[in-house]
C-alpha cells in the first residue's frame, strides 16, 4: 500500500516538474501568444485609437471594411495577385534548383550551401540589397540589360519604381530565397528508393519518363507542404513592400498586411486593424481548407494506395 502511494506521489511530482520545465514555453504561449490573439478579437469589435478606452461597436468595423472601403478590396486584390503568381513560381524555381543540385558532381555541397545562403540573410538587408540592384538609373540589373534595351530601342525598365512592374519585381526578388524550399525538395528527392529507378531503367524508361512517373509523384508531399506554407506566408507579405516601395508607386504594392499596418499606425484605428487581421485569418483558413483537398493527389511513400 505504502509503495503505491509513493508511486502516485512520484507521478504527481514528476508531472509538476514536467510543467515546471515546460513553463517558459507555456508562459510564452499564453501570455505572448494566446492573450494578444484574444485581445485582438475583442478589439475587432471596438473603436480603439490606442489612447482612449476601447468602445464597443460590434460588427461596425467588419461592415465598413467589407462594404465601404475601396482600399480594403484593392489591397486584397494586390495580395491575391501576389499569392497566385509568387506561390507557383516559388515552387517551380525551388524544384528546378533541387533537380539541378541533385547530382553527384564535385563540390555539390558548396553549391547547395550557396543556394541556401540567401535564407540566412535578414529580409531587411536582402531588400535593401535588391533595391540597389533594381535601381532603374544606376542599378546593376539595368546595366546588364542595357545591350538588350539598346537592341530593342526601349526605355530601361523602372522595376520597383514603375507601378506596372513593381509587383512582379517584388515577386522576382522573393525568388532569391527559393533555396529554402529547395532544401526540403532535395531531402525528399534523395529519399526516393534507388530500386524504383533501377527497375525503370530495366524497363527502358527515359530520363523524362522517370521524372514524370517516379520523381515528381513521390515529391508531391514536399510540394504540397511548400504549397500550403507558401500560401499562408504569401497572404501576409509585407516587409519587402514596406522597405522597398512604401506600398507604392501609386499603391501598386499596397498589400493587405500593409493596409492593416497603416490602419493601426497612421489612422490610429486599432479596432479596424484587428478586424482586418481576423478577416485575413478567415480568408487564409478558407483557402487552406480548399488547398488541403489537393491532399488526395499526394502520394505518400510506404502507404497503401
Amino acid at each position: 500500500m505504502g509503495k503505491t502511494i509513493s508511486i502516485i506521489k512520484m507521478r504527481k511530482q514528476e508531472n509538476l516538474i514536467g510543467y515546471l520545465f515546460a513553463s517558459p514555453w507555456l508562459f510564452g504561449l499564453i501570455v505572448l501568444g494566446f492573450f494578444p490573439i484574444l485581445m485582438s478579437f475583442y478589439f475587432s469589435f471596438t473603436n480603439y485609437n490606442m489612447v482612449s478606452a476601447p468602445k464597443i461597436i460590434w460588427f461596425e468595423n467588419y461592415r465598413i471594411l467589407l462594404t465601404n472601403d475601396n482600399l480594403f478590396w484593392k489591397s486584397l486584390g494586390i495580395t491575391l495577385y501576389h499569392v497566385v503568381i509568387a506561390v507557383p513560381l516559388g515552387i517551380f524555381v525551388g524544384l528546378f534548383l533541387a533537380f539541378l543540385l541533385n547530382s553527384k558532381i564535385k563540390g555539390i555541397s558548396i553549391y547547395r550551401t550557396l543556394f541556401y545562403l540567401p535564407n540566412v540573410v535578414s529580409v531587411v538587408a536582402m531588400t535593401l540589397l535588391w533595391m540597389w540592384l533594381f535601381q532603374p538609373n544606376f542599378g546593376l540589373i539595368n546595366q546588364l540589360l542595357k545591350p538588350l534595351y539598346d537592341l530593342f530601342k526601349m526605355e530601361p525598365l523602372g522595376w520597383y519604381l514603375d507601378q506596372d512592374l513593381s509587383k512582379l519585381t517584388l515577386i522576382l526578388m522573393g525568388l532569391w530565397t527559393a533555396g529554402g524550399s529547395m532544401v526540403i525538395y532535395l531531402a525528399q528527392m534523395q529519399d526516393i528508393p534507388v530500386t524504383l529507378y533501377e527497375s525503370a531503367d530495366i524497363d527502358g524508361a527515359s530520363w523524362f519518363k522517370k521524372m514524370i512517373h517516379i520523381t515528381l509523384p513521390l515529391m508531391t508531399p514536399s510540394i504540397f507542404f511548400n504549397f500550403i506554407m507558401g500560401l499562408i506566408g504569401s497572404f501576409q507579405v509585407f516587409t519587402i513592400a514596406y522597405i522597398m516601395t512604401g506600398g507604392g508607386p501609386s499603391r501598386s504594392t499596397y498589400y493587405y498586411a500593409y493596409y492593416l499596418f497603416d490602419k493601426m499606425m497612421n489612422d490610429n484605428a486599432m479596432g479596424m486593424a484587428s478586424a482586418m487581421a481576423w478577416i485575413l485569418l478567415v480568408i487564409v483558413l478558407i483557402v487552406t481548407v480548399f488547398a488541403l483537398r489537393l491532399n488526395k493527389y499526394v502520394f505518400y511513400l510506404g502507404e497503401d494506395s
Binding site: 507601378q163 512604401g246 506600398g247 507604392g248 508607386p249 501609386s250 499603391r251 499596397y254 497603416d262 497612421n266 489612422d267 490610429n268
Partner: peptide, 22 residues
C-alpha cells in the same frame, strides 16, 4: 482625426498619379 496621415499615405498615391500623368 479621420485621416491623421492625410498629407502622407492618404495623399501620396494620388499625388504620384498626377505627377506621372496617370
Amino acid at each position: 482625426p479621420y485621416a491623421p496621415s492625410w498629407h502622407g499615405n492618404d495623399w501620396q498615391s494620388y499625388y504620384n498619379d498626377a505627377l506621372t500623368g496617370k
